[in-house]
Structure formats: structure tokens, C-alpha cells
């Protein structure tokens, strides 16, 4: 479904992503791991169009998407969450999801209808399935950090993506929130057969939900494979797990 081929992207002289390769098949849950500064977020930003690659190819369903604008890439079926919570903080939980639904249905240029109550059924269903239904009228800036992250996933989900990208979905969460979040990601994958690409620092979580893992070090791909293969790979142990794992 997604194929990243020897992509290079540099900031000034620094090559943040240097020849990364990645393959995500339909229905897979793939994790990207690597030490801080390995270029994971930059890679995600390249895939979703927030950055343009210097060279290399990014193919989604066989079509080149490298260098397209974020909103165009979203329309092609990739939505995402960000590492730092990125929601409409001054709008309510309901409105957050509602805008995403309206955007997907291409109704954002509609100046004649009343927005109130539009797409309510779907929004409420989504909020129920992520467990935010009872907070639907809360201004989202007032939510707990964990709830905000979940809301962002709900917003990304409402674009009905084929590929969902999650940049550290559990960063900064309390343990029980992390637990809920993992259950949510599992559920999404089971219920909707969603393809998920995510990056995460919590190795327990990675090996828990990912089917395959890609290891990134200094902007390049070290290894791609099943959890077992990656765990056994000595190069990974040296570079990333400090040889102790």
C-alpha cells in the first residue's frame, strides 16, 4: 500500500532522512522505531506532505505522492496524528470530529446549510467508539492530555483513511491512558481493517501491537522485518537497544 524508496531529506546540511526504505502492506500494523533524532517524525512528515523529499520516491497505492500538499495527500487516503497534540483546541470535541467528517464529504465550501447537527449521527458514533461521547460538548482544550490524544485519533479516523499514521500515540500518557489507547488502536485495526503506521518509544507497546517493525538510525533504514526478526537482529541491539536487550 505504501512504499518509501531511498528517500533523502536534509535541513541545511543535516540529512534528517538519508535513504530510508519502508514498505507497508494493506491491513498491516507497522511500527517505526529508532533513537531520538533518527528521523522518524521527519519521515512521517514526508509521507503526509508536510515536507518535500530531496530525492527518492514515496508511493501510495502505486502513485507518487512525494511533495504533494498535505490536504491532497489526505484526500488520497492518508490521515495522521501528530507527536504534539494537534486538534482544534478552541472548538468542542463534537466540532473537532464534525469538521473532519464535513471535510471528507467535501462540504466545507457549503455556505447555505446550517452546520448545526450536520453529520451528527456519524460524529456521535465515532465519539462513542473512542469513548469520548460523554465529553462531546466540552471545549477540547479543557480535556486531559490523554483524551486530547484520543480525540486527535478520532479526528484522523473520521477522514476514513486507508492508512492511518500515528506519531507517538501514547507520548506523555499516564499508564492507564496508554492501556486505553492500545486497546483503541487494536480495535480500530480489527473493526475497520485499517492499515496503521506508527512510531513509538515504548518497546513493550511496539512488540505488543505491531506485526512488523522498521528500525531507523541516523535517517536510514537499518532493518525491516517481523518483531521476532528485529528482536534477534544484533545490529539493532547495538544501535538502538544498547546491546543489552
Amino acid at each position: 500500500m505504501l512504499r518509501v524508496e531511498s528517500v533523502v531529506m536534509s535541513f541545511g546540511g543535516f540529512k534528517a532522512v538519508n535513504g530510508a526504505n519502508l514498505h507497508v502492506g494493506a491491513g498491516e500494523i507497522v511500527a517505526v522505531i529508532g533513537p531520538n533524532g533518527a528521523g522518524k517524525t521527519t519521515l512521517f512528515n514526508l509521507i503526509t506532505g508536510h515536507l518535500a523529499p530531496d530525492s527518492g520516491r514515496i508511493l501510495f497505492k502505486g502513485r507518487e505522492i512525494g511533495g504533494l500538499s498535505p490536504h491532497v495527500i489526505c484526500r488520497k487516503g492518508i490521515t495522521r496524528s501528530f507527536q504534539v497534540v494537534n486538534i482544534f483546541s478552541q472548538l468542542t470535541v463534537f466540532e473537532n470530529v464534525q469538521i473532519a467528517v464535513l471535510s471528507r464529504e467535501r462540504k466545507t465550501y457549503d455556505i447555505f446549510s446550517k452546520v448545526e447537527g450536520m453529520a451528527a449521527e456519524e460524529v456521535e458514533r465515532t465519539l462513542r467508539s473512542v469513548g469520548l461521547h460523554d465529553k462531546r460538548n466540552v471545549e477540547s482544550v479543557l480535556l486531559s492530555h490523554g483524551d486530547q490524544k484520543v480525540l486527535e485519533i478520532a479526528v484522523a479516523l473520521s477522514g476514513k483513511p486507508e492508512l492511518l499514521i500515528l506519531d507517538e500515540p501514547t507520548a506523555g500518557m499516564a499508564p492507564e491512558e496508554t492501556e486505553t489507547c492500545i486497546r483503541l488502536i487494536r480495535k480500530l485495526s480489527d473493526e475497520f481493517g485499517l492499515t496503521i503506521l506508527f512510531c513509538e518509544h515504548d518497546m513493550g507497546l511496539v512488540f505488543d501491537i505491531a506485526q512488523r517493525v522498521m528500525v531507523m538510525v541516523r535517517g536510514g533504514t537499518v532493518v525491516q522485518g517481523s518483531c521476532e526478526e528485529v528482536r534477534r537482529n544484533t545490529e539493532v541491539q547495538d544501535a538502538y537497544l544498547g546491546g543489552s536487550a
Binding site: P70, C74, N86, I99, S103, G159
Partner: peptide, 8 residues
């Protein structure tokens, strides 16, 4: 940024 990321 969020608006763009949902396709607006």
C-alpha cells in the same frame, strides 16, 4: 495545520 491534515 490540523485543517490541512484532514484534507481542507
Amino acid at each position: 495545520v490540523r485543517s490541512e491534515a484532514i484534507g481542507v
